[in-house]
Design a protein around this nucleic acid. Structure first.
Lengths: 341, 341
DNA sequence: TTAAAAATCGAAAACGTTTTCGAAAAGACC
DNA sequence: GGTCTTTTCGAAAACGTTTTCGATTTTTAA
């Protein structure tokens, strides 16, 4: 009910709040004897410092904000786990916000976090975001920002990413080396960097192996909440380009939509058409055939992002020069049934 | 860089901070004229109140804490979405913590949230939790708590739940009515209320339909991170009790493990053994055959829980008597392929 | 013109800490 | 015993608001 405060301990002991505060914080100008008395009294009175008062005085909240573009399903769930674990380890709390892929909301939420005095923010950009002044503004105001996964190359801050272009290149090269010749790509929408990069990786892999790029073989799947998009485009491509023998999908979700349709339409995977996903979501082992995909280390990404952010927070606090790092996490191909005949 | 504060506006205008504060907050004892000047100056100086100072003065943080037992995968992901959406709508921020099904961690995290002065906390209990003094303590200290999904009946607070026993009863009754006769149950561990209730619903449904309960037909699946548990127990039951014709699983995850094994072992679902899940996770439509399950409205649960909590927070603030409510959300059977021959 | 009422503002306390700086007490040394 | 150093403590300011209450000015009423 009534929290005990420093002054309660002080008056119970007949000393000043200053002494109590110092004793609790281990200042050396308090005698062993009184320190012991203070600590004991704090224990018995069940003292817990009022964080808000501490925050005001010290000008730090030990809290970081996280802005995620999409629902916490799938990939972001892993990232969030990594974030929560590392933040807890380093003594920070985490405030989560979802921008639902809306630029305006993302902007508003970032402002809100700054107003709430979070010590730093982690963000993955919305699909709409192509103006970055809100982020630069935050950094200018001394609130460090670390971008992860869906980043903007033009913003000067630390980032943790995978090499989407390389991962896509590897995936498509794998398919080519397996003997697939007419490989389609189900890409994402046009703004997000990783959608662009994966497409570029696809294109370069074709060119690197002497296969001519055909824009008619790329379909856009910009709905990332269910697998309908993959399903419908699979149906479409099989009427428009029935002679393809593989599809490289931008996400596992899209890939699953494809396989769903193939299973229902009696199209054999991978015999007639192979399918390659991206992210290694949990459900990629649930579908039959199990999905070949790219492992995207979400948990590790969350870990690293928090680590980078907190390092920067303390650098700023101690007036050290901040250095921005870009961490590129390795991906690897997980070969399963959907591409091996 | 340097945030503008009340005093900056005040000295720019040659008035006192009191007047500035009042003008911005719409106090009526400030003239229209000065109020307009203040508001304009606040705009041009880009004033944003320091939340920490406000928190200290007003003794509220407009923040709620959420403790979730498991990783944010699957069901809790939906709940979290509901929580975030409703909290944002009502102007509250959300701090997320994961107890990883550990009682000690849950206890520590609750204490941390209280120390951070959150206005209230939402929690779903860990599997280990069978002592509730930490929760009662929080409530006694005037931090309202509302429990959701994994609750404790003995704690006096608002709750939002589904009727696990009834849902399980309905599920098993459905199977019986479909003509299944020897129905096994893959249950969860022994402590959590919903594990107990689902088991009870299973048992009562059998008895209500004149089928003798056989404890040999219930298997324990207490690993809820992957589907290995369901897989292995499916293997086991088919050697120990090969004549069963249906399994009611405590979660979709377990059910998927079962179906995985059946698919690999050539056991036809539902022809030889039907499978019934629980929760209606996303992947229940990914597996083949698609899983019959109970729809558990996670998003709605998050919504209601936040609503209840914030109502209680304002009741406490305005010194109204608080009334605890228990909201029971409806569930329904989602019939898919795994139970219809 | 004057007294009363209304409108407008500001000083100061408060929220609960942390930290600087000076003062008092104790110990060391001759 | 007197001086100097070290140890131990506390007063007070500060963090940036909100809000009470009184003071001053302006308006109204007679």
């Amino acid at each position: 009910m009534n929290d005990t405060k420093l002054i309660d301990i002080a008056s119970a002991l007949g000393i000043s709040v200053t002494t109590v505060s110092k004793a609790l914080k281990g200042y050396t100008d308090i005698s062993k004897a009184t320190r012991a008395r203070v600590i004991e009294m704090a224990e018995t009175m069940n003292y817990m410092p009022n964080s808000v008062a501490v925050n005001l005085r010290t000008n730090e909240t030990k809290t970081i904000g996280v802005i995620i573009p999409a629902t916490v399903h799938h990939f972001f769930s892993s990232v969030l786990n990594g974030i929560l674990e590392e933040a807890e380890k380093r003594g920070y709390l985490v405030i989560i916000l979802q921008s639902n892929e809306k630029y305006e909301l993302e902007k508003k939420q970032l402002a809100l976090l700054i107003q709430k005095r979070v010590d730093g923010v982690l963000m993955s950009l919305s699909n709409e975001t192509d103006d970055f002044t809100h982020i630069n503004e935050a950094i200018r105001k001394n609130t460090p920002v670390v971008l992860f996964d869906k980043i903007a190359k033009r913003v000067d801050c630390s980032k943790v990413v995978i090499n989407d272009a390389k991962a896509a290149f590897d995936a498509v090269s794998y398919l080519i080396n397996k003997g697939y010749k007419k490989i389609a790509h189900f890409r994402g929408s046009y703004v997000p960097q990783n959608s662009i990069d994966r497409f570029l990786g696809y294109k370069r892999a074709l060119e690197a192996h002497g296969i001519e790029y055909d824009s008619k073989l790329v379909y856009v799947c910009d709905n990332n909440t269910d697998f309908e998009d993959g399903y419908e485009n699979a149906q479409k491509i099989m009427t428009e380009n029935p002679d393809i023998d593989a599809i490289f999908a931008i996400t596992d979700l899209v890939a699953i939509g494809i396989i769903k349709y193939f299973n229902e339409a009696g199209i054999k995977t991978p015999e007639q058409v192979a399918v390659f996903g991206f992210s290694n979501w949990f459900m990629s082992t649930v579908i039959s055939p199990k999905l070949t995909t790219i492992d995207q280390p979400g948990f590790e990404m969350g870990h690293q992002a928090v680590s980078l952010l907190i390092d920067e927070i303390v650098d700023i606090k101690e007036h050290r020069p901040v250095t921005h790092q870009i961490i590129e996490l390795p991906t690897r191909i997980i070969e399963r049934e959907s591409t091996v005949k």
